[in-house]
């Protein structure tokens, strides 16, 4: 268990994406925090780090990674962890997050967020890796539920039961991606509202909202569309249970002007305000 905890941070933010670099450098963008894709800023130098340093001077920053491979059966790459820690030490983020998935085993790295079987063995592996990462980074880890497109025949528990046990054993926190719950539920046949009821709400520090698209026989987590109504509905259901939490909208493709993203973020603010008032 890490000695440190992550204090809740309440606010509404967006991801730092290249088409919006100039906006963030020159305008008073009305966001409470900014999330970065960690790997985009783990090069040696140049424009990315320059932009990040300027952004960090003006906003709190959450680090969100895609390459940790926390579910790898042969452990976490030390060269990756060293670079990640160097970036975290440099920008002092709100927290460091990645995904409950795996990408690499041995020498081959798929660079995709591949699904884990929800088995006791996988839980033991993930928890051991989390503890190693938390020791190396000297801070608690935040893990996100990914979109998944299949299940394994040997699954022994639900995803939300896996998450609950994982947080209990390791003291890690959660980044709850509401779109991913909807996508995985549709693809794999579980009720997203059962997921919300089973997830340990007190461990959630961040919410992701995003859009998806219809693929062949599966919903795909494409992040190229506005947040759809079923995802807003799930957000409205879970939000009052979370207390102080950081909420953001992800867009990684078909990226619109920043003002469009800010307008969509206002929808999140309005829903959050409405459901909080209704729950009071």
């Amino acid at each position: 268990m890490p000695e440190e905890t992550i204090a809740p941070f309440h606010g509404f933010g967006l991801g730092l994406r290249i088409p919006h670099f100039q906006n963030y450098l020159t305008e008073a963008v009305p966001v409470d925090f900014i999330e970065i894709i960690s790997e985009n800023f783990m090069g040696a130098g140049g424009r990315p780090i320059h932009v990040l340093d300027e952004v960090r001077d003006r906003w709190p920053v959450a680090m969100h990674g895609v390459s940790m491979s926390i579910g790898s059966a042969d452990g976490i790459r030390s060269d990756y962890l060293a670079r990640l820690k160097a970036l975290a030490d440099r920008i002092q983020p709100l927290w460091v997050s990645d995904h409950l998935s795996w990408s690499r085993v041995g020498e081959v790295n798929s660079h995709d967020l591949l699904p884990l079987p929800f088995t006791e063995e996988a839980l033991n592996t993930v928890c051991a890796n989390i503890e190693h990462v938390q020791d190396a980074l000297e801070r608690p880890l935040v893990l996100e539920n990914p979109s998944t497109y299949l299940t394994f025949a040997d699954d022994q528990m639900t995803e939300w039961a896996f998450l609950a046990e994982m947080t209990k054993r390791t003291g890690c926190y959660l980044l709850l991606d509401v779109n991913n719950i909807y996508v995985s539920g549709t693809n794999n046949g579980f009720d997203p509202y059962d997921y919300l009821a089973g997830v340990p709400a007190d461990r959630v520090r961040q919410i992701h909202l995003a859009g998806h698209s219809q693929g062949q026989g599966r919903l795909i987590d494409t992040h190229d569309e506005p947040v759809p109504d079923p995802v807003w509905d799930l957000f409205a259901r879970i939000y009052p249970r979370l207390g102080r939490v950081a909420t953001m909208i992800e867009r990684d493709d078909n990226i619109p002007p920043l003002q469009d993203m800010l307008d969509e973020l206002d929808v999140a603010r309005r829903i959050a305000g409405d459901v909080t008032a209704a729950a009071a």
């Binding site: 798929s110 660079h111 995709d112 591949l114 699904p115 079987p117 998944t148 497109y149 299949l150 299940t151 394994f152 025949a153 040997d154 699954d155 693809n187 693929g215 062949q216 026989g217 599966r218 795909i220």
Partner: peptide, 22 residues
């Protein structure tokens, strides 16, 4: 064999995503 019985389309998603992303 290791994935659930109706996971064929899901496997195709991962297979396509691997090459497509690269």
């Amino acid at each position: 064999v290791a994935v659930g019985g109706s996971s064929g389309p899901g496997l195709a998603v991962y297979h396509n995503a691997y090459g497509g992303q690269l």
